[in-house]
Design a protein around this nucleic acid. Structure first.
Length: 206
DNA sequence: GGCCAGGTGTAAA
DNA sequence: TTTACACATGGC
């Protein structure tokens, strides 16, 4: 009898790579990676389908830079992000976060190079997953996002950990050992993206 | 009509 | 430190 061998992070990554999951995705999977828009979409997508986030983003056309977003009033913002739910709490949190970015870093470009994970976690409405999504897809840092899809996939492989950081370390460590520093951002961005797309594909087969 | 979605903050145990 | 609950729309 052959025992099931627990897969390594690299083996899972390679398996996903073979599935051609990112064929019709943007270069770094998350739409408009490297732009301020990612800060907004990272909050809007909390416990919400991406389809509904897209509707809100369409309503926000013309307001998706740091300075233009800050011209929005709370009630107007609520109306625009209504399709993606939780608008009564997401609107004030988005405005506060944007205001704090402006006050602390002046520009989104400086925010990208200087912000820390702890600074993000101190913002109301930004938890571990959103902080890492902003760091990876907004700031182009070598950080792996852990979401419910990621945990689900690992659990199906018989892999489980006690907290977010432990999942993240399992996923990142094996990749860091096997690839040069300059490739890590793109690999982590794709890795998380492939996990999401893999789950979408499984769901669409029902 | 119930359940879920690219979570987070808060309060109670 | 863990658990329970509110937050809200839209698709299936």
């Amino acid at each position: 009898m052959i025992e099931d061998k627990v897969k390594s992070s690299l083996e899972i990554y390679n398996f996903l790579q073979e599935q051609n999951l990112l064929e019709s995705s943007p270069e770094f999977w998350w739409p408009h990676a490297g732009e301020f828009e990612v800060v907004i979409s990272a909050i809007l997508t909390q416990n919400t389908t991406w389809k509904n986030v897209e509707k809100s983003l369409q309503n926000l056309e013309g307001f998706l830079t740091l300075d233009s977003f800050l011209t929005l009033h709370e009630e107007a913002l609520k109306a625009k992000i209504k399709p993606s739910g939780f608008y009564n709490q997401k609107a004030p949190r988005l405005l506060q976060l944007s205001h704090n970015i402006k006050a602390t870093f002046q520009t989104f470009e400086k925010f990208q190079t200087e912000v820390s994970r702890n600074w993000l976690l101190a913002q109301k409405g930004v938890g571990e997953e959103s902080a890492d999504a902003i760091l990876c897809y907004g700031c182009l840092r070598d950080v792996m996002v852990v979401d419910s899809y990621t945990k689900r996939l690992l659990h199906e492989e018989g892999i489980a950990f006690k907290n977010y950081e432990a999942y993240q370390e399992f996923l990142e460590k094996d990749i860091r050992r096997n690839f040069p520093q300059e490739k890590l951002f793109k690999i982590f961005a794709h890795y998380h993206g492939m996990i999401v797309e893999y789950n979408k594909r499984l769901k669409s087969l029902h």
